[in-house]
């Protein structure tokens, strides 16, 4: 008696969840196959035996090991703005930040001059004499 339906009924019977129709169906099967009763009881015994004999602990240090691992992982997690990161960023300033700032200033002044002289910014940057670059007009 190993078909899926019978196994389903056996599992439901073990859990005590049989509906009245299923109960009747199982009863009919037991009448037809008297060995089914013994099979169900053997399966219940097997489950009880396995539950009783299952290992239930890793040993006394398990909890401490897990908490230690969690603490170590929290420590090793990279912090976005830690001291090293800020230092590296600051060291980059003379190489990248300063030239960028300078370039931005030149563009800003050229843009202001070009607007005042009503000429394209490219002319203000490369083509015009210095008296027409009214770069301080914005101040």
């Amino acid at each position: 008696m190993n078909d899926i339906r019978t196994q389903y009924l056996i599992e439901r019977a073990i859990d005590g969840n049989l509906t009245s129709e299923e109960q009747q169906e199982l009863q009919d099967l037991k009448t037809l196959y008297p060995e089914l009763e013994r099979q169900i009881s053997a399966e219940v015994n097997l489950a009880n035996l396995m539950q009783r004999q299952a290992p239930s602990s890793f040993g006394p240090d398990f909890q401490a090991k897990v908490m230690d691992q969690i603490a170590r992982e929290a420590e090793s997690r990279p912090v976005l703005f830690d001291a090293d990161f800020t230092d590296r960023l600051w060291n980059l300033f003379p190489k990248v930040g300063l030239p960028s700032l300078g370039t931005a200033c030149v563009f800003m002044f050229a843009n202001a001059s070009a607007a005042a002289a009503e000429i394209p910014i490219i002319d203000a940057l490369f083509g015009l004499p210095s008296e027409q670059l009214q770069m301080f007009s914005i101040f």
Partner: peptide, 11 residues
């Protein structure tokens, strides 16, 4: 939680 569920996880 670890103490409570160690048995379940171990088995």
């Amino acid at each position: 939680i670890v103490r409570r569920y160690e048995g379940t996880v171990a088995s």
